[in-house]
């Protein structure tokens, strides 16, 4: 039984990071209907920026974590400004392909840095001894990661519900023309959506880097799992992204814990989300919390 609870704990840890990265993805989709294929790469670069600030520049982790969020905020904003601003009004299919191109470009840039070929890991910031309750244990890094994620997610929920900028973002996602007519600058909202997505991605990357270490392949595959997460939750629901993120973390941990090694299966945690994605697409395409648009074909 303690094995089960251990899997639940680590599932929640991984899942909360999925939730945070899914949040950024949903933000972009909600405001501008663009599927950002490059989201995983933005997460990875957030992680690498945090590392280089902390270890190479010697800035304390608390400050460098915030700094990397600010840097990625502006990076993502400029990506939107340079590549996507001029594609407003083009067919959505070419905008999505631009993000596929962006994914490739960021990959190339990361391969040019030392992070592309070598593995690094953050120094330990917290006590090494894990906290144990009965037989279940959780390391300090994981605990702090979950707490930061929870704080960030609740902060963003507040931001979308109450603040003026958040409300204007929701307005744009609801109806662009109507929000334009009451004086919301739609391009600015698009930029802000990308910027906030970059910010959450950097946070997710920073936490993830502390937990799993910095291996580009791992971070990349982590980034692609955002797709099954947001599809499970419903593409345009922030609550859905959070719930589905935690669910996906649990599913992966259970798959790794119970399926691997039995019946000749291996690495099921990597593939199960995608099988699930195909099944959801076939039977419940709008996910758990997505809006049921009448878009049947």
């Amino acid at each position: 039984m303690s094995y089960f609870f251990q899997l639940v704990v680590s599932g929640i840890v991984v899942g909360s990071i999925y939730a945070l990265s899914g949040l950024g993805f949903v933000l972009i989709y909600k405001s501008s209907r663009v599927l950002n294929v490059a989201h995983g790469q933005i997460i990875a670069s957030g992680c690498f920026i945090t590392y280089s600030l902390t270890v190479w520049a010697g800035i304390p982790i608390y400050i460098s974590f915030l700094m990397s969020m600010v840097i990625t905020f502006f990076l993502a904003m400029s990506v939107e400004r340079i590549f996507l601003r001029r594609l407003i009004g083009e067919p959505i299919i070419s905008v999505i392909m631009v993000t596929i191109g962006l994914m490739s470009i960021i990959d190339g840039i990361i391969y040019l840095t030392p992070f592309g070929s070598e593995n690094y890991s953050f120094p330990e910031f917290f006590p090494q001894t894990p906290i144990s309750v009965g037989d279940v244990s959780i390391s300090w890094t994981q605990l702090v990661g979950v707490i930061i994620t929870a704080v960030l997610i609740s902060g963003f929920s507040w931001f979308f519900k109450k603040s003026t900028v958040g409300i204007s973002m929701r307005a744009v996602s609801d109806d662009q023309l109507a929000s334009m007519s009451i004086g919301v600058s739609v391009p600015r909202v698009f930029g802000l959506a990308w910027a906030t997505a970059g910010l959450t991605a950097a946070a997710a990357g920073g936490i993830l880097g502390n937990i799993t270490g910095l291996n580009f392949d791992v971070l990349q595959s982590f980034g692609i799992i955002v797709f099954p997460v947001v599809i499970l939750g419903g593409l345009d629901s922030i609550l859905g992204a959070v719930v589905a993120g935690v669910l996906m973390g649990l599913i992966q941990q259970f798959a790794a814990g119970y399926l691997d090694g039995n019946w000749g299966l291996n690495g099921t945690a990597e593939v199960l989300p995608y099988i699930l994605l195909l099944v959801i697409l076939l039977f419940k395409p709008h996910g758990l919390f997505g809006i049921h648009e009448i878009e049947r074909v």
């Binding site: 590549f83 001029r86 594609l87 070419s94 392909m97 631009v98 596929i100 191109g101 962006l102 994914m103 490739s104 470009i105 960021i106 990959d107 190339g108 840039i109 391969y111 040019l112 592309g116």
Partner: peptide, 16 residues
Amino acid sequence: ALRPLTFGLVIVLFLM
């Protein structure tokens, strides 16, 4: 490093 970089750039520039 250069291959994904060039292909990505080519995709983006052609689309733009």
